[in-house]
Each structure stands twice: as C-alpha cells, then as structure tokens.
Amino acid sequence: MADIDRSLVRSLPLFADMADPDLDRILSRATMRRVPAGEAVFEQGQKANQFYLLLHGRLKVTQVTPEGQQIIVRVVHPGDLFGFAQALQRDDYPGTPVAAAESVVMCWPNEAWGSFVEQNPRLAVNAMRTIGQRLQEAHTRIREMSTEEVERRVAHAVLRLMAQAGRNEADGVRIDFPLSRQDVAEMTGTTLHTVSRLFSAWESQGIVKGGRQKLLIRDKERLEALAEGASVRN
C-alpha cells in the first residue's frame, strides 16, 4: 500500500507539533480503510489487535447490554481515537463502531503504540488529552442520566452534537450526519416514543426541524434554556 500523505492528518490534534520525520514514521505503520454507511469497523467482544483513528465521516459506537438492550455510548468524530482497548486494560473491543455516513479510518497494530510514544512523547500527551475529553463527556452523560429529567437529557445531547458536528446554514445549525430519533433515544437512555414526542413539540415551537435524519437546530437559545430546565413557550 502507498504511504499515507502527512497532509491528510497534519491538522489533527493528535499529531499537533509533531516533526515531519516522526509523523512519517507513524504513518508508515498505518493502513487506511473506507467504511460504507451502516457497516461496522469491528464488533463488540472481538479480539482487539488494532487501534484506530477516524479520518473522515462519523461513527456511532453501540453496546449491547447483558439484557439485550442496545445503547449508543459515544459518537466518534474526525480526529478521534477509538478501539483503543489497551487503554482500558482489556483485550477485546467494548463496543461496535458503525458508520453513520461513509467514513475513512486509519488503524495501527497495538504493539506499535509503545514504540510511537517512546520515540515521540508528545504523541502520548496529545492522546491523553483527547481520551480525557471523551472521558469527561462520558462522565457528563452519566451525571445527566442519573439526575436530569428526560427533556433536559435530550436537549443536552442535541447541543453536544451541535457543538461537535454542527454546520451553519441560513436557517440554523444542522447536525452534519444522519441522526435518527432512535439514535437519540439510545444516546439518552429513553424510548423512541419519548424522543418523537419531544421533537414534535420542539418542531411546533420552532426550536428544531427534522427531515431525512438531518436535524436542524433553529433556536439554540431556547434549546439551551430547555437543557437548563426552563420551560419554553411559543
């Protein structure tokens, strides 16, 4: 396989301030893979031999609980590491990342990580920072699930996605990947019926607009008010 051009990854936080020879050395061990929408990169419980970085697209990481319920534990955005099972001190993947849109991932064998950080400690610092951000997000979601009513949880989830994957348009900010109401239900620990009821109410109030699984936030201020527990009137 041809070498991966460093210009594809130079702007990613993981590789910030890295010298070209060091970056080229890391990329020489990488392979690149296209993942069509709806396809899994790997499956929950599969032996973890590699770790990954999302270069383009979006991934929804799902887990199936022992009771058989599917939940979405995180959304992977461009530049994010994922499948880093060794950071969790486990030898299998804890979830299944599924492409929400056509995606491009890079992967490395697990054994490459040790030599990477030995030769370039800055990589470890950057990786810890990005993993720490994801951990903070997970803690926030746990707190919301434990303490907040469902409307606040859903509003917070939509605002997070808007911050991470929002694209400004004339009528508002669009979440720039396919997002179904079922997805939102799985992210927030509620039911499809509840999310559908909330979204219908929000649409009637002009706060959001749905369509083709692309959610448009038309009134960020009122959505923020809902996330903080305020009542919103037409």
Rank of each mutant, 00 (worst) to 15 (best):
F84N: 14
Q69E: 15
R90T: 15
P66T: 01
P66F: 02
L54P: 00
E43G: 04
L53Y: 10
F51V: 06
K47A: 14
Q50G: 01
G79Q: 10
E111N: 11
G83R: 11
R33N: 10
L88W: 05
D80V: 01
M106I: 09
V35Q: 09
Q86P: 02
Q89R: 13
G79M: 06
K60L: 13
C107H: 12
G83H: 09
K47D: 11
F84W: 15
T31K: 11
V75Y: 06
R74H: 01
A100S: 14
T96L: 01
V104N: 06
P36H: 11
K60G: 08
V75T: 13
A112F: 13
A37I: 06
Y52N: 02
D92H: 14
T96P: 01
P97Q: 07
A100G: 12
V105W: 00
L59C: 05
R90M: 13
P78A: 01
A87F: 15
M106V: 02
Q69P: 02
A87V: 12
F84I: 14
Q69R: 15
S103L: 00
Q46E: 15
V35C: 08
P94I: 11
G79W: 09
A99F: 01
Q70N: 10
L55N: 02
V76F: 07
A112S: 15
Y93T: 05
E39V: 12
Q44Y: 07
Q86I: 10
R90H: 10
H77P: 00
L88N: 10
V41T: 06
T65V: 07
H56C: 00
E102F: 06
A40V: 08
E67Q: 15
I72M: 04
P78H: 03
G68P: 11
A112R: 12
V105N: 00
I72V: 11
G57K: 00
F51K: 09
F42A: 10
P109I: 06
H77V: 05
V73P: 06
C107M: 12
E43W: 07
Q70P: 03
Q86T: 12
A100Q: 11
A101R: 13
G83C: 09
I71S: 13
G79F: 12
T65F: 08
E102Y: 10
A87D: 03
C107R: 11
I71G: 08
P109C: 04
W108D: 02
R33H: 13
L54T: 00
T65K: 12
D91H: 15
A48P: 04
E43H: 13
V64Y: 04
D80C: 04
D92F: 15
A100F: 10
K60T: 05
V35E: 09
V76L: 02
T65N: 12
G57P: 02
K47C: 07
F42W: 13
L54I: 00
G95Y: 05
T96F: 03
G83E: 06
V104H: 08
D91A: 15
F82D: 03
R34N: 14
I71T: 14
D92Y: 14
L53T: 03
Q63C: 09
I72D: 01
T65M: 10
G38V: 04
Q44A: 08
V98E: 10
V76N: 04
A87Y: 11
Q46F: 03
V41L: 03
A40R: 14
M32G: 02
L59Y: 05
M106P: 05
E102R: 14
I72F: 04
R34P: 02
Y93F: 13
V105A: 00
L59H: 03
G38Y: 08
